[in-house]
Design a protein around this nucleic acid. Structure first.
Lengths: 142, 142
DNA sequence: ATAAATGCAAAACTTTTGCACCCGA
DNA sequence: TCGGGTGCAAAAGTTTTGCATTTAT
């Protein structure tokens, strides 16, 4: 629920570590974990450290070069309502809200038709800025 | 990537701990973390252990009583393709695949209209059984 | 030169688990 | 009674971080 402070991003340097990490990620479709990336990169840079991999993954994600598949935080959140519904996560205050639009079951049919998989359900999270945070920003810069 | 073994679920007992945990989850819309639930339940059962909270959250999730908001695993996965696209996660083999259907931007409009939030993007994961796993199951039980 | 990036290791966090004891059905 | 559930504490697993050193620009 912490508010992110926005400081100017420093100019990025091109390092071998970062280049290889990106190259590993670009050359697989397996949606790997940080640890898998680490193992792969080690074959090219044996003494790279796991910390460097984590730092660069976060950086590359912030630079829009790669996508991180997670629910925003490192821990799970729980919802007392087990009925299928969508969620909205505010990037500024971190709160998660229920979304009040119907679940698009037709997307599941489209996936079935396209790939043949058995689709049981789907989950969608929207990301953006909630009304409270929008208002706060207006107050700061009118 | 591990395959889940399916053993018969034992008959569940109704314990005070489980009842209070569910009650806490049902009476909030804040999509709390396990730790927050723990703190709340402690106000009613001061000597409950965090392990019990985790065990029951997992149990309640498996019983379909609550929803867990996470990407399936406790760690992040990364995708070298930063372009918006959907994912499919096989519940049996754990692999994650790219989904080849167009992103439903119109859902974002619907959320905007309904709630007024500024929506930047959304992410959708489908869950089910992939073709490899479907075939393996057929071989076992023809 | 100088600020960003790295390697290493320790630390921080979240989640799981082994085990003896407890308790609900 | 009896097997599921709990408390406690240790362990596991993932991610972050402090610091001295290296390196890209």
């Amino acid at each position: 629920m912490e508010v992110k402070s926005q400081k100017k991003t420093p100019r990025r340097r091109s390092t071998r570590q970062r280049r290889v990490i990106l190259q590993v990620l670009r050359s697989t479709k397996s949606h790997p974990t940080a640890d898998w990336v680490y193992e792969q990169v080690r074959q090219e840079i044996p003494n790279i450290s796991l910390g460097t991999v984590y730092r660069n993954l976060k950086l590359l994600r912030d630079m829009g070069e790669v996508m991180e598949l997670s629910f925003g935080s490192t821990y799970s959140r729980f919802d007392g309502n087990p009925e299928p519904h969508y969620h909205f996560s505010c990037k500024d205050c971190g709160r998660v809200f229920d979304v009040d639009i119907p679940v698009a079951k037709e997307l599941e049919d489209a996936v079935r038709r396209q790939h043949g998989w058995e689709v049981l359900y789907h989950r969608t999270e929207f990301y953006g800025c909630c009304n409270d945070c929008k208002q706060q920003q207006e107050e700061k810069q009118p």
